[in-house]
Design a protein around this nucleic acid. Sequence first.
DNA 1: TGACTATATGCGTATGTGGTTATATAGTCA
DNA 2: TGACTATATAACCACATACGCATATAGTCA
Lengths: 115, 115
Amino acid sequence: MKRKESKREKREMSEEGLQLVAARFRILSDPMRLRILQYLESGEQSVSAIAAAVDSTQPNVSKHLKILQEGAFLTRRQDGNTVYYAIGDATIFALCDLVCQNLEERQAKRVTLYR
Amino acid sequence: MKRKESKREKREMSEEGLQLVAARFRILSDPMRLRILQYLESGEQSVSAIAAAVDSTQPNVSKHLKILQEGAFLTRRQDGNTVYYAIGDATIFALCDLVCQNLEERQAKRVTLYR
DNA sequence: TGACTATATGCGTATGTGGTTATATAGTCA
DNA sequence: TGACTATATAACCACATACGCATATAGTCA
């Protein structure tokens, strides 16, 4: 298979840089958060709607939403009593797609990735 | 700035799929492992060379190497007494580059990413 | 105002993870 | 064979993290 030869400049990253990158990956390293992101792909949703969709409790979802928002993966909008979250950084999906393609190529453990 | 409009098909991922993706991000969510990957970008290296380069202990590095290899991010080659690890999946750098670009765009905390 | 609703936060707990130290394994070489 | 070297693994510890539960906060509406 052909691999796009990107002309990457290899600059050595600083310790702070590495920590920032690691922190970003860490935010994406939780299935529940990925579920939330996947649900929000269809558009802005309220906290309670999200909690119902991902089959979790409201407090738990609120916590994950905070983590995602602090990482600027989500945006927050409040309307009266209700808070709406939406995807704030499309990079997420590019990242996930890369990983998914990769998993499919490797067919790791021959698991069904999609429903 | 223009965002490439990729024709992503939104397929809902299974729980197993999400767990696999999350696990993959998790492997990349540690600064020490990123340092190892960065070091190996210049080519195959022995365990002890890696340990020296990333300024850690040999057992600690061995553990990280195992994690990276089990995730198929690295390949392992033994020559006599010495074990050499090398990058086994170029996707890593694509992922890191995406995150780095993203961080630079956002200029999160105005930290110097590179030395 | 008070009752109600939606969301956020604090606390306790179980589990996961990264690190160190000591030791086991396995290869080389005399 | 035995001494030496390189790597892997085991035991342990400190700390992080995800969750459930209870409660606080804050907005709405009568």
